[in-house]
């Protein structure tokens, strides 16, 4: 099944104004959908939809207090929707929407929608680096950083869910929707990618008690590690709370930086994720600090060595 990945994640939020400010400061562009709904989009049009939690336009909430209300996935074309509809209609109610999309619940009660993807094709360079022994990627006089450089989320990368029944959710996504497991953190859970996406993962599942079911975090791809660092640094300076990072994961090799949010989930900037094809054999490692990252750093105020010892000016 040619599923590409998440187009939108939909939240019913407690603090609408706080969430709007947060998402815009994170670097997403606001698009008002109707009286009560806003889309905050990345450069390729993917993103986060928010509505007040009591909005009747939202799908039913999870039994937990988690604010995630629906995951909307993009597929390559309408034939994929027919394929998914035929498969899902075997054992559950599937609703066909006027725009051609389909809605149903997964085996754990998460609300899903599939649609022909709304992703706009991006044509932008990746971060360019120069290194001895390799052709220079930047031309002479082309600068690597500037104070006003853009550092905006390019695309919704992945969603991470807290799930109470790992076997159920993995067999649902793999056996029914054709996802493949790329790696496994034993004790936490597997990374998955769908057939029409070569990113290391669009999904990661973490085993938890039922009272935690919901979204743990979502991530947006940046143009490279420098953009990730610049965006995160600017976000911290606006007063937002770093949760984990910056650092670089081992599985997926992606750089990461996670932040708390008024949506009750973490928002992650990620960059430079591995790509895989069907010849890849999944690795397995015990979950923990060692397996989670190749290195972990922490933000600090700008500082520079200056002045001599004993208070000398040293300039």
């Amino acid at each position: 099944m040619r599923i590409i990945g998440p187009d939108y994640l939909v939240f019913g939020v407690d603090d609408l104004e706080g969430s709007k400010t947060y998402l815009e400061d994170f670097g997403l562009k606001p698009v008002q959908l109707d009286d009560t709904g806003w889309l905050y989009e990345a450069l390729d049009g993917t993103g986060v939809i928010i509505r007040p939690k009591a909005d009747p336009k939202l799908p039913a909430p999870l039994e937990t207090k988690n604010m995630l209300r629906q995951q909307i996935y993009g597929v390559e074309d309408a034939s994929v929707l027919n394929e998914i509809e035929a498969e899902m209609s075997k054992d559950r109610r599937v609703t066909r929407l006027s725009d051609g999309g389909i809605e149903f619940k997964d085996d754990l009660g998460f609300e899903l929608r599939f649609q022909v993807t709304i992703r706009r094709e991006l044509s932008m360079p990746a971060e360019k680096i120069n290194a001895p022994g390799a052709p220079a990627q930047r031309a002479p006089n082309e600068l690597g950083v500037t104070d006003d450089m853009a550092a905006l989320p390019r695309s919704l990368s992945h969603v991470v869910l807290f799930v109470p029944d790992m076997d159920k959710v993995v067999s649902f996504f793999c056996d029914r929707l054709g996802f493949v497991v790329t790696d496994v953190l034993t004790g936490a859970g597997p990374f998955l990618r769908p057939q029409a996406n070569d990113d290391h993962h669009t999904h990661f599942f973490i085993r938890t008690p039922a009272y935690m079911q919901g979204c743990e975090h979502l991530a947006f791809h940046m143009g490279g590690p420098t953009e990730l660092m610049v965006a995160g640094d600017r976000f911290v300076r606006k007063g937002y709370q770093s949760f984990w990072g910056p650092g670089r994961h081992k599985f997926g090799s992606n750089w990461f930086w996670y932040f708390n949010s008024p949506l009750g989930v973490h928002f992650e900037y990620d960059a430079d994720m591995d790509k895989h094809d069907d010849s890849w054999v999944a690795r397995e490692a015990p979950n923990g600090p060692e397996a989670s990252q190749i290195f972990l750093l922490q933000w600090r105020e700008k500082w520079a060595p200056s002045g001599g010892p004993e208070g000398g000016s040293g300039a």
């Binding site: 706080g18 947060y22 207090k65 807290f162 743990e216 709370q241 949760f243 708390n260 008024p262």
Partner: peptide, 26 residues
Amino acid sequence: TPMAWRKDAYLDSEGAHLACHAHGAL
């Protein structure tokens, strides 16, 4: 782990509970 989502943002929107904005605990 730190709980606010922005400096001093420690309460839920009604001010009824302290909230952790990592995973929504009240």
